[in-house]
Every structure is written in structure tokens, then in C-alpha cells.
Design a protein around this nucleic acid. Structure first.
Length: 941
RNA sequence: GCCCGGGUGGCGGAAUCGGCAGACGCGGGGGAUUCAAAAUCCCUUUCCCUUCGGGGAGUGCGGGUUCAAGUCCCGCCCCGGGCACCA
């Protein structure tokens, strides 16, 4: 009836050992919970600040500092799977290693909790986003705590905390109250602009006189300079989500990244961030950062700087500026192309076609106006996806001609959707000889093609984009591209035909969202409809409680409708902005999710400060460094552009205004890989639960039917999630940590294999068994000294593990520890204390719980967290006897053991005297003998 | 098309400086222990051939440099990611 008990007593009777203290999942859990509770109680991971409420008397503040950070997560409702914490474990191991190496380490974790998913969830469940968000955060905190991550819990923030978003709003106000002084090349307070306008040291464009402007006009002009400004701009309107989206949030095929809904372009008045003012600095400062080349090149690509010229073509009574990176090819310009929506089109077209018009140019319409109208409709309806897939050149002739500045020649003007309004000037000079797209268009429309760069003699292609001497180009003839560019730009500038110009792909950052669950803007509108900053004392502008917070799902033609507009009693407020209490209308949009993640690393430093977003000396302490900023920032590659670019931008603004001391926020960036897992599809292509799939021979079966295996990111949609909880249940947190670190290098994607986790548990189990009696739980170590060979191995292990940990190569660090432990396992006698103690210390960063437990058993009262990581005895790193391979013609044929200090000459002699080598050489004299000191001998015959 | 990564046993990976390819782990095979099994411990495990001494091949493919190449050079192929009519 009670088989478990019966069996137990049976084994007792038969005198079998009972391993009550074997390291298994139960014991692991007992140990892990015990230490997690102790750490929390003792505040083990509290990192002291130099001042303020987080200062302490541990003395750690005098150590060199290290700021280690993870990209903070969105607290999702579905909980974690084993793929999520990979990076968190990596930073934790590194942070622990550095703590043990004598650093004051700041490591904590926050939550990026505003954003769409909480609202989507709220819409589905009727639960307020805040409740749902808080519940998710609590759940995630619990899950992460169970992993034994050494975070300073006092510094954990959520972007949705009132105390936090108050300062997000405050930073917004700094942007609102600043402008970019291009002479100083930095952001300055807007007051300085006013002074400069007053005293005339800055003059306005188009000869507008500042003095003659009305107060209202002055305000408008000032507003147009702000780093946060309102602009009527074409936006990405997503009716299904009920919000506009940033360019970065729209996929290449014109759909929302979240939800894959259609997105439409339409003009709307929106908050913008003048990130373009920082384009050059964002580009140049990449050089100094310790980031991967891949991320840097993605940022460079996104900023998209290209140098060239704007050339003015004249047509009718207008000037058509075109941007080109190849002004040297101007003599080959045979037509102009404008984007279909280019504003100049309306003043350039003729009412009738010229008499001899080419029928290909008219689109079959009877006159230019009708052709243009039809073409605009056609290209408007084309989705971006169509544009991409179907690159056939289309367009229509405007009926008019433009004059090429340098030749005076008349060339036809077209509109075509291969020219984009959003880049350069929205107009190009087409040079088919040197541009593949122009060549295609010229072929379709029968336009002239003039080569202006001599292609190589064996060139049989079409447009030639390589270098070569200029031809057919008058005074440029014979010059290589670079010099020809310089010469023509000089000519253009001398003859008012154009000027040097740099163009960027980077656009200003659209900052408004028509959403509830985001930071409200600290902005109110006066009766003239102009925006005003809410005074700092009044911050935070708190989100109103709303019953109906869901965005309306709307159709293509409707206007975005911010949910905050429904907050009765909130949409207006009475403030005194210097001219007595007045009623103002609040800004109803909210900030995008990126806002909160732009500066959270600064709040970690000084989370309880109610006077400032971060205090000066604390910021200086934690952010200083060789080039400054967070010392190690680990996260996924998916934030390569958006978050990392926005954050760098805000940081530079704060730097310009003197609030932070470093020009960059993140000195070293490391991208962790993803954990993938096998996923299985049945014959309909549906994913089936991966846990229920079994392998027979080399095939996979689910409910007796064969299924196909593939690999993908772990998650709900592929039905291949494995949760940390399952791993705790079966192995414990230390094993999970160890396995995740052992699977491969941190920056690499790797497939999860639950069956392999056992290997990591075995390591801990063997270490435990080497130090502790499994029946009694007593220490089994001895105070006698180890064999010299074991001692050598220990010190070699310490040396390589230290190196590996410094370089985040935890997988090889674990391999070295395993080797050491395998040797200990082979000992006939108990483990010497002088080996056991460093072994525990080597493991402590990786498996902190078991290390604490063993450290305590070894008789230490203080936590292993602050024990010193062992350092190798240099003398023991050098073997006195080395095994030297001897090669014949580059292949290993023999090995000799020899004093490691042996001279090259001795090495050579001993190698040649080796029996095996002698027999291989027979009577031949070796042609050559190469001796690599202390490493190898190669004999050439 | 352009720009980044990457390709090593059955699997994850190691070899980061041009110097013993396959560390370490999973899986497999064999043995010890056990009534038996699990667990544990030991041996073995790149492939092919072998008279069991050993011999040969081998890091995506084809060339090259070198005494020596996974590593460097040239030309390809494949996989993953990013960008893409950006003038």
C-alpha cells in the first residue's frame, strides 16, 4: 500500500547507504531558498553610493566601481521561459566574479512596463493596465529571485512608477526648453536663443526681422527651434492600433511591427524630437565605443550619412534643387525626376503635351494634368511592399524642361515613384550612364544615356558605378571621381549653381502616441493654441484614472483619438505660468515606450532622489571611466537601432546641458544570443507541443503520427517553451545557471536540450560529493597537502578561469573547472582543504547557492559573495617537464618528455635521437629542423 | 543586390598569437557495483583500413602562401541576421 516506505525500510534493512545528503533537486531547493532568504535579509547585493541614502559604511565605496546592466525587460504576462534569463545570468556571473575581484559592483534590474501589450491585455480582460502591469512585475521579480540573481533590490525601478515618470517628464522638459546651437555644436537652453535673437547675433531665414515680430509670432519662432517641437508631419497612422507609429515601428512592407496591421501615411500635428541635430555626433562617437561592428554598422546605416551636393536646376520660373552624391556626373544628366508628391510639380507641369511627345512619356493620357493625377493616385495606392517587389520603372512626363546649370542644356522633367519625397530634396538629376536605376528608367522611356566615367575596357554591363577617368564632361575630363567632384562643386559654388551638401536618412523622432498607457506630456496649451511647459514643481503630470482606456479601432480615414481626451476633469487645468492663474488645455497624447527606456540606467544610480533625477556626484562616481558610461550593457540585438539610438541621443542632450558627465551612455555593449528550441509541425503545418514529441530511430512522433522538426526562438507560438520552474523542479537553480552558461559562448544562439542539463547537475553533484559525505552531510576534506601535480592543475585552472570570466567566456571557464574536479574525483584520499576552498570560490560566480553552502561548511561566517577570487601562483603555472610533439613533415610522429627549460639545441638533439624518429629518418639526413621553443619540433625530410 | 556574422564528430561546442584538431559536456558502446534496476564509479567513442604494431583521410568546396593552415591570401558554395529604388 505504501511502496515508497516499504522500499525505504527494505533498503535500510539490507544495510544499503541512504544518501540523505546527495545533491539532488530537493537538496538544491533547500539550499537555494535558504541562501536567497539570507541574502535578502542581509542586503548582500546592496551597492553603496558615495552619498545620499544609499551610502553605507561597508567601505566598498573606496573600491573601483563597475556598472553592469541588462536591457531591462517588458514584464510580460506569460512569464519567463528558460531563454529569457540567459543574458541576466551572464551579467550576474560577471558581476559576482568582479565583486570577488575587488570591485564595487552595481547590478540591478528594472521593468519597462509602459506600452501596448498591457493595454491590449486590458482591452481583452477589462482589468486596468496598472493592476495587470504590477502583477506581472511581481511575478517576474519572484521568478528572477529564484534564479539567485545578485541584484540590488533597492535600485529596481519600473518606468510606470510615479517617481520614475516624473523624471521622464522632467527630461522631456529639458528637451523642450533647449535648442541646438550649430555653432557650438551642442544643445543650449532656449533662453540663450532668445538673447541671441534679441541682440541680433542670430538672424532668421528669409530676412524676417525678430524685432518686428508679434509676441505670438516670436513664440512660434522660438518653438520651431526646440529639441522637442510640434510639427505637421506625415505620420504612420495605424487605425487598428488607434495610434501613430514611429518609422522604426513600421515594417518594410508597411505594416505595424506589433500586430502586423496596415499603416497609412497622413499628415498630422505631432511631437517630434530633433535627433537629426545629433546625426553627426551619433555617427562619430560610435568609433569610441566597445560595441560589435554589426551593431555599429546598423546604426551607421540607419543614420545614413551621404555627402554630395545640391544642384539647382531652373525650370519655368522655379528652381528645382536636386541632391546628388555624384555631382561629377552632371554632364551625363539627361532628365530630372521628382517624387510624385513633390510640391513643385504643380508649378512645373504644362497644360498640354509638346507636339512630338514620345508616347511612352504620356502614360496614355491626353495632357500632363490628367497623367499626373492618375499617376499620383496609382503610386499612392501602391503599398511599400509593391514598390519593393515590383521595381519596374514607371512615371510620366510633366511636359516641361529644366536647364542644366553647367551646360545650359534643356532636359525633360518626369515624376516617378522611384524617387522618394522623404530623402534629399525629393528630386534627382538622372544620370543613366552611372546609375542602375536611372539606366532602367531611361531604357523604359527611351531617354539618352551619356557615360561620364570611362568604364574598364572589358566592361559589358550597363550603368557603370566604379571609378575611372571622367569623359564627355568638358573641364572635368580625365579626372578621377574624387577630384571631379571637388572641381564641379567648386564650379557650382562659384556660379551659384549649387553647393556642397550632406544628407541623412535619419529623420526626426516622432514622439506622440494616441495611447493611454504611457507617460503624459508635461505640456499645456494656452488659448492661442501654443504649447507651454508645465512648471517643474507641478510634476509629475499624473495619468488620470480612466474607465475607458482602450484606443478606438478606427478606419483609414478617421483621425487618431487619444484616450486621455475622455478623462473628464483632467483635460483642462488651471496653472499660473507667470501671468496669473489661467485655464489651459492639456496635451492628450502620451509618450512612446522608448521614452522610459532612454534613461533608466541613470535612475538606477540614485533611485530614491526626490530632488534630482540623479545627483551629480553619484552620476560621476558610477559613469566615469576610460570613455565613460555603463561598463557592460548586455541585451538582445533587436535593440540595435531604436532603443540604443534614442538613448544615446537623450544622453547627449543631458551631456550638453551639463546634467551628465559622459558623452555616451554605454561604453561596452554585448549582444547575447538567443536560446532556440526544437519545434515540431504536423502534416497540416500546425505546431504540436514539443514536450510530447518522441524520437524513434531518426524520426519524430506526436500521438503516433510523424512530425517534422525545425528550430526556432523559444515561445508560445512554436509550442516549445521550457520554463525555469520545470528546471528548478528537476535540477535546481544552480544547475540551470550552470547549464545556460555552459551551452556555448554568450553571444551565440544555441539550441536548448533538456536532456543535456543533467551534465551540469553532475558537475555540482561531484563537487559536493568530493567535499561532503552524502550520508551524513559532514565535510570529508583533509588538511594534508595535495600532490604537486594537483596543486599545479589548480593554479592553471585558476589562471584560465579568471581569464575566461574576464572575457565572458563562461563555457570554457566551466570546462576548466570540470577538468579540475574530475581530477579531484580520481583521488583515492579525501580532498585537501587547500584544493577544496579555491574550487568553491571558482564556482561561486556560477553557482552561488551551493558555493555559499559549502563555504559555510568550510567554516566561514562571511558570505562567499565578498570572498576574494583566488589568484594563481605564477611559479606553479610553468611545468618543469614539458611534453613536446615531434613532427616529420608537419605530422606528429612522436612525443618526448623534456625539461621545459631545455634549450632549442637540446630539444633538437633529443628529437633527432628519438627511436621512432630515427627509424623514420632511416639513413636520410633531415633537410631542415624547425624548433619552436618549448613547444614543438618539426623535421623536414 | 549591398553590409555584417557563421560553416569543426551523432549533438552543443574547444583550439582567441600560424605550432599536437576535436578540450569540456550530452548521447552511444563496454565494464564494475546490484537479486535486478536506477544512481554511482571506471574504460571507450572523428571517420576509414588494420595482421591490433600501426597506417591513411579529415575543420563547407577549389586553389595558393608556409617547415607547419580550422586559423593567413585568392576564387566559389551554403546557412543566419541587417539594409534595400536613400539619388
Amino acid at each position: 500500500m505504501f511502496p515508497a516506505i516499504t522500499l525505504y525500510s527494505e533498503s535500510m534493512d539490507s544495510g544499503q547507504a541512504t544518501y540523505n545528503y546527495r545533491y539532488d533537486a530537493n537538496l538544491a531547493e533547500e539550499i537555494e531558498l535558504k541562501w536567497q532568504a539570507r541574502w535578502e535579509q542581509a542586503g548582500t547585493y546592496h551597492a553603496p553610493n558615495p552619498s545620499g541614502s544609499l551610502a553605507d559604511s561597508t567601505g566598498r565605496i573606496d573600491l573601483p566601481k563597475l556598472f553592469i546592466m541588462d536591457m531591462f525587460p517588458y514584464p510580460s504576462g506569460t512569464g519567463l521561459h528558460v531563454g529569457h534569463p540567459l543574458g541576466f545570468i551572464g551579467t550576474d556571473v560577471y558581476a559576482r566574479f568582479k565583486r570577488m575581484s575587488g570591485y564595487n559592483v552595481l547590478h540591478t534590474m528594472g521593468y519597462d512596463a509602459f506600452g501596448l501589450p498591457a493595454e491590449e491585455h486590458a482591452r481583452q480582460t477589462g482589468q486596468h493596465p496598472r493592476e495587470n502591469t504590477d502583477a506581472n512585475i511581481n511575478n517576474m521579480r519572484k521568478q528572477l529571485k529564484r534564479l539567485g540573481l545578485g541584484h540590488d533590490p533597492r535600485r529596481s525601478i519600473s518606468t510606470t512608477d510615479l517617481d520614475y515618470y516624473k523624471w521622464t517628464q522632467w527630461i522631456f522638459l529639458q528637451l523642450f526648453n533647449s535648442w541646438y546651437d550649430s555653432e557650438l555644436n551642442q544643445a543650449r537652453p532656449i533662453k540663450e536663443l532668445e538673447t541671441k535673437l534679441e541682440n541680433g547675433s542670430i538672424t532668421l531665414k528669409e530676412n524676417i526681422s525678430w524685432a518686428a515680430c508679434s509676441d505670438q509670432r516670436k513664440k512660434e519662432i522660438i518653438n520651431s527651434f526646440r529639441l522637442a517641437y510640434l510639427a505637421e508631419a506625415p505620420v504612420n497612422w495605424c487605425p487598428a492600433l488607434g495610434t501613430v507609429l514611429a518609422n522604426e515601428e513600421v515594417t518594410v512592407d508597411g505594416r505595424s511591427e506589433r500586430g502586423n496591421h496596415p499603416v497609412y501615411r497622413r499628415p498630422l500635428k505631432q511631437w517630434m524630437m530633433r535627433i537629426t541635430a545629433y546625426a553627426d555626433r551619433l555617427l562619430e562617437d560610435l568609433e569610441s565605443l566597445d560595441w560589435t561592428e554589426a551593431i555599429k554598422s546598423m546604426q551607421r546605416n540607419w543614420i545614413g550619412k551621404s555627402e554630395g551636393a545640391v544642384i539647382n536646376f531652373t525650370a519655368e520660373d522655379s528652381t528645382v534643387p536636386v541632391f546628388t552624391t555624384r555631382p561629377d556626373t552632371i554632364f551625363g544628366a539627361t532628365y530630372l525626376v521628382l517624387a510624385p508628391e513633390h510640391p513643385l510639380v504643380d508649378s512645373l507641369y504644362q497644360t498640354d503635351w509638346p507636339e512630338d511627345v514620345d508616347s511612352r512619356w504620356t502614360g496614355g493620357y491626353k495632357n500632363p494634368p490628367s497623367a499626373i493625377e492618375a499617376y499620383r493616385i496609382q503610386s499612392n495606392q501602391k503599398s511599400d511592399l509593391d514598390r519593393q517587389e515590383n521595381k519596374d520603372k514607371t512615371g510620366v512626363f510633366l511636359g516641361s524642361y529644366a536647364k542644366v546649370p553647367v551646360t545650359g542644356e534643356e532636359i525633360p522633367i518626369f515624376i516617378s515613384d522611384y524617387v522618394l519625397m522623404g530623402y534629399g530634396t525629393g528630386a534627382i538629376m538622372a544620370v543613366p550612364g552611372q546609375d542602375e536605376r536611372d539606366w532602367e528608367f531611361a531604357e523604359v522611356f527611351g531617354l539618352d544615356i551619356i557615360r561620364t566615367v570611362q568604364p574598364p575596357t572589358d566592361w559589358d554591363g550597363k550603368a557603370y558605378v566604379g571609378d575611372g577617368p571622367a569623359i564627355n564632361s568638358d573641364f572635368l575630363d580625365g579626372l578621377p571621381i574624387k577630384e571631379a567632384k571637388r572641381a564641379i562643386i567648386q564650379w557650382l559654388e562659384d556660379n551659384s549653381g549649387g553647393r556642397r551638401q550632406t544628407s541623412y536618412k535619419l529623420r526626426d523622432w516622432l514622439f506622440s502616441r494616441q495611447r493611454y498607457w504611457g507617460e503624459p506630456f508635461p505640456i499645456v496649451y494656452d488659448k492661442d493654441g501654443l504649447p507651454n511647459a508645465v512648471p517643474e514643481e507641478v510634476l509629475p503630470v499624473e495619468l488620470p484614472e480612466l474607465i475607458d482606456w482602450a484606443p478606438r479601432s478606427l478606419d483609414e480615414n478617421s483621425d487618431p483619438e487619444p484616450p486621455l481626451g475622455r478623462a473628464e476633469g483632467w483635460t483642462t487645468t488651471t496653472l499660473d505660468l507667470g501671468n496669473g492663474p489661467q485655464e489651459y488645455i492639456r496635451e492628450l497624447n502620451t509618450m512612446p515606450q522608448w521614452a522610459g527606456s532612454c534613461w533608466y540606467y541613470l535612475r538606477y544610480l540614485d533611485p530614491l532622489n526626490s530632488e534630482e533625477f540623479v545627483s551629480e556626484d553619484i552620476e560621476k562616481y558610477w559613469m566615469s571611466g576610460e570613455t565613460g558610461g555603463v561598463d557592460l550593457y548586455v541585451g538582445g540585438v533587436e535593440h540595435a537601432v531604436l532603443h540604443l539610438l534614442y538613448s544615446r541621443f537623450w544622453h547627449k542632450v543631458l551631456f550638453d546641458l551639463g546634467y551628465v558627465t559622459t558623452p555616451e551612455p554605454f561604453q561596452r555593449l554585448f549582444n547575447q544570443g538567443y536560446i532556440q528550441a526544437a519545434a515540431y509541425q504536423d502534416e497540416r503545418g500546425m505546431y504540436v507541443e514539443a514536450v510530447d514529441v518522441s524520437k524513434v530511430e531518426k524520426k519524430f512522433f506526436y500521438q503516433e503520427k510523424e512530425v517534422q522538426r525545425s528550430f526556432g526562438k523559444m515561445g508560445k507560438s512554436l509550442k516549445n517553451s521550457v520554463t525555469p520552474d520545470e528546471m528548478y523542479e528537476e535540477y535546481g537553480a544552480d544547475t540551470l545557471r550552470l547549464y545556460e552558461m555552459f551551452m556555448g559562448p554568450l553571444d551565440q544562439d544555441r539550441p536548448w536540450e533538456t536532456k543535456s542539463v543533467i551534465g551540469s547537475q553532475r558537475l555540482i553533484q561531484r563537487v559536493w560529493r568530493n567535499l561532503v559525505n552524502e550520508e551524513t552531510g559532514e565535510l570529508t576534506i583533509t588538511d594534508s597537502e595535495p600532490e604537486e601535480s594537483l596543486n599545479r592543475l589548480l593554479h592553471q585552472t585558476i589562471d584560465s578561469v579568471s581569464n575566461d570570466m574576464n572575457n565572458l567566456r563562461f563555457n570554457t571557464a566551466i570546462a576548466r573547472i570540470t577538468e579540475l574536479n574530475n581530477e579531484i574525483t580520481k583521488l583515492e584520499s579525501p580532498t585537501p582543504r587547500s584544493i577544496a576552498e579555491p574550487l568553491v570560490l571558482l564556482l561561486a560566480p556560477l553557482t552561488p547557492h551551493i558555493a555559499e553552502e559549502l563555504w559555510e561548511k568550510l567554516g566561514y561566517e562571511n558570505s562567499v559573495v565578498y570572498a576574494r577570487f583566488p589568484t594563481p601562483d605564477k611559479k606553479l603555472l610553468i611545468e618543469d617537464e614539458a611534453e613536446i610533439p615531434i613532427q616529420v613533415n608537419g605530422k606528429v610522429k612522436s612525443k618526448i618528455k623534456i625539461d621545459s627549460n631545455a634549450t632549442d639545441e637540446t630539444l633538437r638533439e633529443v628529437a633527432l635521437a628519438d627511436e621512432k624518429i630515427k627509424s623514420l629518418l632511416a639513413l636520410n639526413e633531415p633537410k631542415k629542423v624547425i624548433v619552436v621553443s618549448g613547444k614543438l619540433v618539426n623535421i623536414v625530410i
